[in-house]
Every structure is written in C-alpha cells, then in structure tokens.
C-alpha cells in the first residue's frame, strides 16, 4: 500500500522544483513552463486526496484548474509574443519596467 504521504511529498518536491525554476531562470517561456509544473503538482495533491477520501470534488478541481491553465497558456504566450515583438527579447532581466 502507498500511503498518501508519498504523493504529498512528491507533489511538494515537484512544486519546489517549479519554484526554483521560476526564481532562477530568465527565459520567460521557461518560467511559464515552471508555472505549469507547479500547477500540475497541485493537481496531483487534489487527485490524491480525491482517491484517498473517496470524494470526486478533487477531480472536479483538477478539471477546472486545467481549463484555467489552458486559458493562462493562451494569454501568457500571447503576452510573450507581444513582448518579443516590442523588445526583441524574452529575458525578463531586460524587462524591468516595474522598477521605480
């Protein structure tokens, strides 16, 4: 038998992997993919709890998270394209217009 802890710890490891990617990479597209990785690790948690509790709500969440992720992918990639068109780069160190 596999206790739920295994799934949770695996999910945490993948989540932190995504966090490290977001914090260290400069390529906007890779950061974007890291966010997808984080979303997926959360999905794993949801599905695991759904199975161990015998409750389908977790899988409903996963379904809606995927829908949001799809929407986010479309908009996010559009932003990347717009960014690249204006600045000829996707390196976020070159895009610090938030700075005071």
């Amino acid at each position: 038998m596999v206790p739920i802890h295994y799934y949770l710890i695996l999910s945490a490891v993948m989540f932190i992997t995504g966090v490290v990617g977001v914090l260290t990479r400069r390529n906007a597209i890779i950061i974007f993919m890291c966010i997808e990785l984080m979303l997926n690790s959360v999905n794993l948690t949801f599905v695991a709890f759904s199975a161990y509790l015998g409750n389908e709500t977790g899988q409903m969440f996963v379904f809606f998270i995927m829908a949001v992720a799809a929407a986010e992918a479309a908009v996010g990639l559009a932003i990347v394209i717009a960014l690249f068109r204006n600045r000829q780069t996707v390196n976020i160190n070159d895009v610090n217009i938030l700075r005071w």
Partner: peptide, 17 residues
Amino acid sequence: LRVIQTGVVQNYAALIV
C-alpha cells in the same frame, strides 16, 4: 524601503516564497 523595490519580478516571487 525603496531599495527592495528592484522591479525584477523574480525578487518579488522570492519574497512570496
């Protein structure tokens, strides 16, 4: 406090962590 407002999104994300 202005010093920590680098404008680099990754720093903000790091602070979230």
